[in-house]
Computed example of a mutant assay.
Amino acid sequence: MTHQEISHHRLVSQKLYKKTKSSPQEIVRHFGAMQAQDYAMAKWAIGSRCDASEVAIEEAINSAQIIRTHILRPTWHFVSADDIYWMLDLSSPQVKRFTNSAAKKYGYDDKKLDQINLAIEKMLAGNNHMTRDEIMQELNIKKSSSQEFLPGTIIMNAELDGLVCNGKMKGKQITYALLEERVLKPITKLTKEEALAKLAKRYFESHGPATLLDFSWWSGFPRTTCKIALNALELQLNFVETEGQTYWFGNQISDENHFRESVHFLPAFDEILISYKTREVSILLEHQSKAFTNNGIFKPIIMENGKVIGTWKRTIKKDHAKIETQFFNETESSKKEILFEGIKAFENYLEMKIVIE
Rank of each mutant, 00 (worst) to 15 (best):
L212Q: 02
A229W: 05
F221I: 10
N251S: 14
Q252P: 01
I253C: 05
R260D: 15
P222Q: 07
D214M: 05
E243V: 03
Q252D: 10
F215Y: 08
R223D: 09
W248E: 08
N231H: 07
F249M: 13
S254D: 09
F221D: 06
N231F: 04
W248G: 08
P222M: 14
C226H: 09
L230H: 00
W248V: 12
T246R: 02
Q236N: 13
T225P: 02
G250W: 03
T242D: 07
E234S: 12
G244L: 04
T242K: 10
S216Y: 10
V240F: 06
W217I: 00
L213G: 11
Q245D: 08
F221A: 13
S254K: 13
N257H: 14
K227C: 09
R223C: 04
F215I: 06
C226M: 10
L233K: 04
E241Y: 07
I253Y: 04
A232V: 11
E256V: 10
A229T: 11
T225S: 03
N257P: 00
T242N: 12
N257T: 06
W218Q: 06
W248I: 07
C226T: 01
F221S: 11
L230Q: 14
L237Y: 01
I228L: 10
L230S: 04
I228Y: 10
T242V: 07
F239K: 15
F221H: 10
I228C: 08
Q245L: 03
N238R: 13
S219H: 09
W217F: 14
D214E: 02
E241N: 13
L230I: 08
E243M: 11
L237N: 05
H258E: 14
E241G: 01
Q252S: 07
N238Q: 15
N231C: 01
E234C: 02
N238H: 14
L237V: 08
L213N: 00
N238C: 15
F249L: 00
V240Q: 13
L233W: 02
L235N: 15
E243S: 01
L230M: 13
N257E: 13
I253N: 06
R260K: 15
S219K: 08
L212S: 05
L233P: 06
L237D: 09
Q245Y: 00
Q245P: 07
A229S: 15
N257D: 15
V240P: 09
G244N: 00
S219T: 00
L237H: 06
D214W: 05
G250I: 00
S216H: 10
N251C: 00
Y247N: 03
L230R: 12
E234F: 07
N238D: 13
S219D: 00
G244C: 12
S216M: 09
D214T: 09
D214F: 04
L235R: 15
S254C: 07
L235F: 09
W248D: 00
E243N: 11
F249E: 03
W217T: 04
T225I: 14
D255I: 12
Q236E: 15
W217Q: 07
T224Y: 06
Q252T: 12
N251K: 14
T246D: 12
D255V: 06
T246G: 08
V240R: 02
T242M: 07
H258M: 12
A232D: 11
L212V: 06
A232G: 02
L233D: 10
